[in-house]
Amino acid sequence: MPKSDLTISLNEVLFYFTRAGFGVNAPIGVSEDFARSNIWAAQNGFDPCECSLSALDHLDHKKSSLSIKFEKDNQISHLFCPEDKVLSSLEASVSCIDWIEFNGLEGKLKISNVDCPFLVIAALGANQCFGVKASWIDQDNHFYEVNFVDDTKWEIISTSKAPIESSHYADIYISSLDSNNTEVPNGKTQTFDIKNEKLEVLNNGVKVGEKWPKIYEYFSRCLVKSSAESRASGAGAGLVDTD
């Protein structure tokens, strides 16, 4: 399994990504949501490793933090990392979904300095947050807007030719979708048909590329070294069955 360029199933995305999150010390509940977001990304034709490996690396190297705080003034709600670090997209994702669950789509949410914005997008998709718009300008000054139109389609409007999953370090703005009003000047639109994308993946599997072995390495941290004793007694059954 630690080979690159594999085809894996959605259930394997769930299994390995949950434990990969756990492998970089994210709490299990956050890791479960992280894996669900990756399933959504995979269902929509993305290699889930592309975005998630950066987020896991940042946590592992302590470049990002799971610490988060919430503030609200009259105009805007604000999620941010109180430490001098970027906010991990694993935590930004779950807190963003919690905010929508709690507030509905009243008002606007700003999530500051998120390491991997596409993971927040994947969380919105995984939680079926329709009628929502997310937008950001990343460190390369590329403008992205993602519109969750309804349960049949979503779209990316971007000024960048780079894949959305490689966009890093941005303040993300979440609000209700006004479909007639895009904020991206001269952006190109890419539309996704949710049902067809999913069907394609169910019939052909999820292609993971060269970053997969590193995801597997993080996953492997949840495995316990086998000893002669645990091998003999840990599973209860004997080692040979000749009856």
Binding site: S220, C222, L223, V224, K225, S226, S227, E229, S230, R231, G234, A235, G236
Partner: peptide
């Protein structure tokens, strides 16, 4: 989970590693 083919195992605290 053991690294041995991901076999699920049941350990005793203070006795087994993991």
């Amino acid at each position: 989970y053991s690294e041995d083919k991901l076999e699920p195992r049941f350990g005793s605290r203070g006795v087994d590693e993991g």
